[in-house]
Simulated assay, not measured.
Amino acid sequence: MDKKWLELLERLVNTDTGFDLDNSTKLERTQFIADILKDYGFQVHRESAAHVALKGKPPYLTLIGHLDTVFKEGEASRRPFTLQDNVARGPGVADMKGGAVLLVAVVEEATKKNLDGLCVILNVDEELGSKESRETFEKHAKESVCCLSFEPGGIHGELVASRKGIASLNIEVKGVKGHASRLEEGANAIVEASHKVCELYSLNGHIGSLTVNPTIMNGGEKSNITPDLCRIYCDVRFSSTQELKEFEKRLVEIVSENRIERTSCTYSLTERRPPMLFMDEMKYALEKVFQNLGRRFELEHSSGGADGAFFTTFGVPTLDGLGLCGGRFHSEEEFALIDSFKDRLRLAVELLECFDQRRSEKKVRE
């Protein structure tokens, strides 16, 4: 990894871009990355929670990544970038500031090879669910022929071929207040909610690969009052829209049948990210690239959601996990393996060239 890329990685890691900052602040703090893209001939501007850089005309070869982290303001000062032998550490060093540096290096190589029709999107709200930047991704997905995402690779070099979608489930159980010593006076919302939590959890393993995990439960007012309200939040992960539909069908049954008399239940189920699918066109491109490289990378299906899913929803072949390899993401032990840089760089550039050739062939046919 050349010195200039290490210096860029150090600067990025030592720039706080945590979830506790507003998006405009994070965009301002990372403007230096956008300025580097300008130096490569891109037209750069800001859209919803993202830096967007365009070079040439669509349809685009699109590269994406995020510049935000899960760490609070001050973490970079408390735990700045360090490098020992092959291992880099610091907040977000792998997820995914290392990937952002790799993306810029890919842009440099693509520029040297005179590749045109490039789109780069670097958002600052990915760790918050990309609520604002989703609009930006979907807009440019409609103009893309492929999407390469630079989330971190696995510790053994794995690429992410597909990902689960994410949905948020909020349940509200209402009961009746009463004196805690007189059970007949009240209708305990916490007890009813507990039944529903157990029923929901029992669905795991019965609807394809879908998982439902109750992670937050709040109820009760005082120790001597029967609670009349309890709220539950569940994290839901799914590999297909059909799985989510089947889950909601079972969910309706669970919330409509109450064990405790005089309780009632409502819910809201919101898709936060669609699943990222492994499309045939990306499979074929990878096979060609593996042959050119003379080596293969393992492919994995991830239970974690990411922004590449916004592209497969529009039929755009997408590959993720192209960033620096590493591990212990979202923790103080997070690390990135510097010696993975060279192979990831070559892999990404080969993929861009492959899709550029396909794009050219398609234009000729048209």
Score class of each variant (00 low, 15 high):
W5V: 05
L6C: 03
E7D: 12
S24I: 10
Y40S: 05
Q43T: 11
V44S: 00
R46F: 03
E47T: 01
H51S: 00
T62G: 07
I64W: 00
L67T: 13
K72E: 12
G74F: 11
L83P: 01
A88K: 15
G90L: 06
G92L: 13
V93I: 13
A94D: 06
D95Q: 08
M96D: 04
E109N: 04
K112R: 15
K113E: 13
L115W: 05
D116K: 02
R134T: 02
E135D: 01
T136M: 10
A141G: 09
A141Y: 09
L148Y: 05
G154Q: 06
L159V: 06
G165C: 04
G165Y: 04
L183A: 15
A187H: 03
A189P: 03
A193E: 01
S202H: 10
G205K: 14
H206C: 02
G220C: 07
T226N: 05
P227D: 12
D228Y: 07
L229Q: 13
I232D: 00
F238L: 07
T241F: 08
L244W: 01
L251N: 12
V255W: 15
S256D: 10
R262M: 02
C265H: 09
T270R: 06
T270N: 06
R273T: 06
R273V: 00
P274V: 14
L277I: 13
D280A: 09
L286E: 05
E287T: 04
E287L: 11
R295P: 01
R295I: 01
L299K: 14
L299A: 11
G305M: 04
A309T: 10
T313I: 07
F329N: 07
F329C: 05
S331L: 05
E332W: 07
E333Q: 14
D343G: 01
A348Q: 10
S360D: 10
K363C: 00
